[in-house]
Design a protein around this nucleic acid. Structure first.
Lengths: 351, 351
DNA sequence: TTGAAAGCGATACCAT
DNA sequence: ATGGTATCGCTTTCAA
């Protein structure tokens, strides 16, 4: 088994306290002793013993703050359930949670909410927030002060966050395209596609669309995109625009919904059903919200592509916990979720 | 935070040693004191602190023995990689591994190998073995002696194993059927299906076939099964029988491969290609061995249904570790893997 | 039948 | 700048 701090102290002829100081760069140690200790640790590939660390660290429990713009968007419920589930597992080790679930995408509101989390004592953060300069600058300020941050579901690549945990949106879009290519019947070509997205300002949604288009080309699916409509992740909002599109373009035979407004679009579709030829309409969507599940079971939607929201939350908490135990414990890369294809039969798979 | 043993001792007016004895049913404690201690623990919903337990238990590290009939079957490599990966995570906590990868399905050989694992000092077991009476009897004997056992990938339901971790074979078969129903073109009906399995004695393979047939009915796919061929998970063995089937039944337009002989069947198929109409043959298989991946990328195979072999191994080790820390920590149910649908685009997802 | 004490690995604080 | 010591929660051994 690995070398311990006590053993390092013995080999170096110093006390454990001194070794601890060196290993944590806490200063106040004679350079030559410091060097000797570091060498011994290095040569014996010292890794901190987590059980010991946890036990000793019980007085400074880890409070993790989680920010989600999830009010009004059921998708984030699953991420939150991943957070809380990981917290329960780690409760023994002193991990607790503060979840701030807010509404909307105002930078000021996001910054304010993050500050609140800090004020409430959080010592690490999981953030699903906006990739805009002012928010990023604010976050980098926090990180400077020693608060580790993980970007969940939405990346903020310009910051010094530890890593991003979430979907590979481009790949998901491309997978959707390949799936579509497999279920097409020759007579249906070319595809006339209505695309719905959340917002053209959200990178993830755009990547889903880019991946989709490039996939359609890669798999030689003849197609044209009739329209790209913003639904702002809001079923009620999207209803009327969707209705308008369907009325205006009865030639539509494929619907691609890159964001959380599946129910709204499908309700509009059902109302327009007389003008279209519903049995030939192919529908591919993302995520598996309750209403989406129902529409899949009903047979209206062909596939949904999922992104393991639960895992996103779950793994984020674990990563922050590991980091708290050992700063060197950083994921080598971003943690990208699998691209999960669901049909009715495997719809209840939980991730 | 939860109550500790020390606190229980104080409340009960006894020493920590006594509490420990009671909590571990080690005997030698006056009944009334035992009752009092149990009551206090109960009322305060005492849960053992894992960090403390691990630290104190360092002298009796947990050696987990893993038995796999994986020689000659690449599938098990991923399970093994799940085992070793979990072990690395838990090395700090004293978990080590002995993996016995054997060839074939002889009950005597399996029993012998399990005995060897025990002789080598294993104190917990992950077993992928045969669901036959003599093996099960032997395993129950071991469990009686206090060795916890988890069934991985192949269930042994008649034993007192802690739980089964692996695929839901029936569901996977049914999912395959629904997928197939989605990609069919009307002109192709009815389906003439050649089925390949590992062995008619292996329950998992049979369940994949049952699920498939019931799925085809459920989704109203007109079909007939031309033949069910045993391939014994062996690409070389299956080649000639497959060739014979294809020569004899040029009407075959669908191939369902429920076991690890994908490469062999496809090689035979390519040789018979002139007699069949390859562009109309639908192929659905299981797992994603390297050769299977190649065939998917090549476009010959439409889908593969995967069962997270890595996760099976990974979760098994974690479950045994948790159990070792706290005997009450038993999964409420069997742990069934998700039914993963893969096409070329998401083929490199790792689980 | 029970208690007391040492020890697992790391940390924090006080004393030097 | 460094050492010593108590502590975290639990297990184990030895003594009584």
């Amino acid at each position: 088994m690995a070398i311990t701090i006590k053993e390092i102290a013995e080999q170096a002829g110093v006390s454990r306290g001194t070794v601890d100081r060196v290993l944590h760069n806490r200063g106040g140690v004679k350079p030559e002793i410091e060097a000797r200790i570091k060498r011994i640790a290095e040569q014996n590939s010292f890794r901190i013993n987590k059980a010991g660390r946890i036990l000793a660290g019980r007085k400074q429990p880890l409070v993790v703050g989680c920010l989600m713009p999830g009010v009004g968007n059921l998708f984030f419920d699953d991420v939150i359930s991943g957070y809380t589930s990981a917290q329960k597992e780690l409760a023994d080790y002193g991990v607790s949670l503060k979840i701030k679930n807010i509404r909307g995408f105002s930078p000021e509101r996001h910054i304010e909410a993050i500050q609140e989390l800090l004020d409430e004592g959080c010592r690490a953060l999981c953030l699903s927030t906006l990739d805009v300069p002012e928010v990023c600058r604010f976050i980098d300020g926090i990180i400077e002060k020693g608060i580790p941050v993980i970007a969940v579901n939405t990346d903020i690549p310009e910051t010094k966050r530890i890593c991003y945990i979430g979907s590979d949106y481009y790949k998901a879009g491309k997978t959707a395209a390949q799936l579509l290519s497999k279920i097409l019947r020759p007579g249906e070509l070319p595809l006339k596609i209505a695309v719905f997205t959340g917002s053209l300002n959200i990178k993830g949604h755009n990547e889903r669309i880019t991946g989709f288009e490039e996939g359609l080309s890669a798999y030689h699916v003849e197609h044209s995109i009739i329209n790209i409509t913003e639904g702002f992740d809001n079923d009620e909002y999207v209803f009327l625009p969707a209705l308008a599109i369907f009325e205006k373009h009865p030639e539509i035979n494929c619907i691609y919904i890159a964001a959380s407004c599946v129910a709204g679009v499908c309700t509009a579709l059902k109302q327009s059903v007389m003008k279209l030829q519903p049995e030939r309409i192919r529908i591919v969507v993302f995520d598996d919200l309750p209403e989406t599940k129902r529409l899949i079971r009903e047979g209206l939607i062909d596939f949904t592509i999922c992104q393991s929201p639960f895992q996103q939350g779950y793994q984020a908490i674990h990563a922050l916990f590991n980091y708290a135990l050992d700063k060197r414990d950083i994921p080598a890369n971003n943690i990208l979720m699998n691209t999960i294809i669901k049909i009715a039969e495997n719809l209840d798979d939980k991730d």
